[in-house]
Structures are given as structure tokens and as C-alpha cells.
Design a protein around this nucleic acid. Structure first.
Lengths: 197, 197
DNA sequence: GTCTATAGCTGGATAGAC
DNA sequence: GTCTATCCAGCTATAGAC
């Protein structure tokens, strides 16, 4: 159920700063992710933030890119499994990733450099998902109940929304919504086989 | 298509401060909504924020409550129309409201007073929606294709997700996702009749 | 009810020693 | 590559004049 995000390996100060920033972003929001707090959490001096990244904006962009790249790899693996839809459905439930994305979206509201980054990344993910899901549907014998685009958006929307609400302890109707999506997955891909990695 | 949010009427300084805060929150994010910026935008002195609201946190909570109450009234009206599902579907597309909610969710990450406010409000909306949609489905002659809970979550999830993505100019697959939802609405409630209010 | 003035803090960012 | 020291801007919040 929990994230497949790997434990951060020590790769020097820049990586340590990114790790610390990510943790603070998820746990306390971007307003808490100041250069002093981030550096302190990494056991380093605040000036190093500017030495390595130039500005705080640049650090946020670098962090977004790193996380985006990681998630992209994970999705690629998921879509290459023997049950691409079920694996995708599982992958997009990652709560850390969802929380991070939310912070970046909020950041983009007044850090304009983030906007284009998010757009580019979202399109990249969308196209990868569309391609893979379309391939699955084409392999179907009977007519699939939904288009690839509708299914991808349905899965993404419901997943994001439920993860966000769950964070606020709001879960009314979630079971039924999950069942709605998973009934479609079963109809296309059959029952989910064990994915306890 | 655009919001039904009424033009702010002058109701004295507290309302003017809330109006200004709301505008800044939507357009620039909560990091820009400082007491000076808010008061300045309202043509007032920053000290008045503290005179009327006590702290900035209290101002944000007051703003959330005001917006939540407004939206609640609008949804009640929507659900009382002759096509409750279509009206609800239209009401939840409000972009200003979606943007505001996003900021409040981000704020809740380090302003703990916001968390319980959001939870309470979300549950209130959910229960109102569930009750109304269940009533619609019970009136159906043939077996409805989805449960009330699944339908409510489906509409909310897709709407929120599409509005958010659209803000980043990401619209790939949106038409198909909208069609998926609206096909269900048609099956239950028939074609949408004019709602050009 | 509205303003000025100000205390006290925290932030981004840079210069320069080591 | 890492640190200390520092500048300056902006923030929350309060005291007190009007």
C-alpha cells in the first residue's frame, strides 16, 4: 500500500538538500521549506543551497524534476507488467507523490518557473499512459467498455481525489468509487493477481 | 461556463478585507496573502486585519467559512432544480472555488486550524450531495447504472482534476472523460436542458 | 474605527574567510 | 566545498495617537 519510493541514498550535499526539501515539503508545506530549514535538516549550511542551486526557485525546480523522473520510471515499469492497468492503478495511488505534486501546484501559483515544468511533466505522463492503455484495449477481443483516454482520466482523477480527501480523514463513498473503477479493470484485465512486490 | 460567484458588495471593512484576500489567494497563492498586501488591496491599513480578525490564521478561517457557506447555498439551489445531477455537475465546475480550495488545502499543511475546517466542510458537502443523488436514483424506474456514492465521487473527482489540469493548459483526454460522466447523466436524467442562467 | 510607528523575527541572497 | 557574518526586505503583531 505504501510508496515504493526508495530510501534516499547518500550522494553528496546536493542530493541531501533535495532529500531534506522533499521531506519538509510533504510534511509541512512549501512555506516551511526555507533555505535555512532545508539546510538545517540536511545537516548543512544554508549558503550551500545558493552555491548548488542558485536560488530557492531553482532548488524547487530541481526537486520537481528529480521526483518527476523517478515517478516516470516507476510508471514505465508498472505499464510493462503483465497487468498494466492494475499496476498503473496501484502506482498512481502513491501518497507521497500526490502530496508533493499538490505542493508544486500551489508553488506554481507564484513561482512562474514551476508552471511550465508541471505542464511538461503532466503531458509526458499522460502520453505514456495513453499509449500503454490504448495498447491494452486494442488487445481486447470484445469491445472495451471505455476509451483509453476516458479510462486514464478516470483512474487519475479518482485516485488523486481520494488520496487528497483521505489525508483529511474524509472517506465517505470512497469504497464505492474504488469499486466503480476496479469493476472496469476487472472487465478488461481480469481479476488482479498478486502485486505484493 | 464562468462562476456564478456574485460581485462583492461593499459591506464594510471586514468584508472588503475578505474580498481582497480571496482575490490574492486565487491569483497569487497564499504566500502572497500577507496582511499588508491584503489590506493594501482593500485600500485599508494593515492593522485593521488584526483589529477585525485577530491573526492572519483567523482571517483565513473566516474566509474559508464564508466561501464554503456560499458554495453550500449554491449547491443546495442546484440540487433543488429539475435536473439535479446536471445542475450539480455544472456547479462543481466553478474554477474560482476549485482554486480557492486548493490554496486552503495547501494552507492546512502548516496551519492546523484549517484542517478541521476543511474536513467538516467536505463532509457537509458530501452528505448533501449523497442525499440528493440517492433521491434522484430512487425515483428511477430502471436499475441505475451506478450507486449514488460512486456517482457523486466520480463527478467530484473528474471535475476537480480537469479544472486543475486545465489551469496548466493540460487538456489531453478531457473531452473523453467529460463524455464518460455525461453519458451516465444522460442515462439517468435524460439530455441536459438549457441551464443558461 | 482607522491610522502611524515600531518591535521582533525570519526569509533570500551575497561576500569573503578557510 | 563549506562556513561565518551580514545586508536588506518583508512578515506578524502590538501600542498608542487621533
Amino acid at each position: 500500500m505504501s510508496s515504493g519510493r526508495p530510501v534516499p541514498v547518500d550522494q553528496g550535499s546536493p542530493a541531501a538538500l533535495l532529500d531534506a526539501a522533499e521531506k519538509i515539503l510533504v510534511e509541512e508545506g512549501y512555506a516551511a521549506a526555507s533555505s535555512r530549514r532545508v539546510a538545517g535538516a540536511a545537516g548543512l549550511n544554508a549558503a550551500l543551497v545558493y552555491y548548488y542551486f542558485g536560488t530557492m526557485d531553482d532548488l524547487f525546480v530541481a526537486l520537481f524534476r528529480r521526483g518527476s523522473e523517478r515517478s516516470f520510471q516507476l510508471q514505465q515499469q508498472a505499464l510493462a507488467s503483465d497487468q498494466p492497468l492494475w499496476s498503473l492503478w496501484e502506482a498512481i495511488h502513491d501518497r507521497t507523490s500526490a502530496a508533493l505534486t499538490l505542493e508544486f501546484v500551489a508553488l506554481a501559483n507564484h513561482r512562474k518557473a514551476m508552471r511550465s515544468e508541471i505542464t511538461r511533466s503532466a503531458l509526458r505522463f499522460r502520453h505514456m499512459q495513453l499509449e500503454a492503455v490504448a495498447a491494452v484495449l486494442e488487445r481486447q477481443e470484445q469491445q472495451p467498455p471505455v476509451s483509453a483516454a476516458a479510462l486514464v482520466l478516470l483512474m487519475s482523477s479518482v485516485s488523486r481525489f481520494l488520496v487528497m480527501e483521505r489525508d483529511f480523514d474524509v472517506v465517505v463513498g470512497h469504497e464505492e468509487a474504488v469499486a466503480l473503477v476496479e469493476d472496469i479493470l476487472v472487465a478488461i484485465e481480469g481479476e488482479r493477481r498478486s502485486t505484493a512486490a
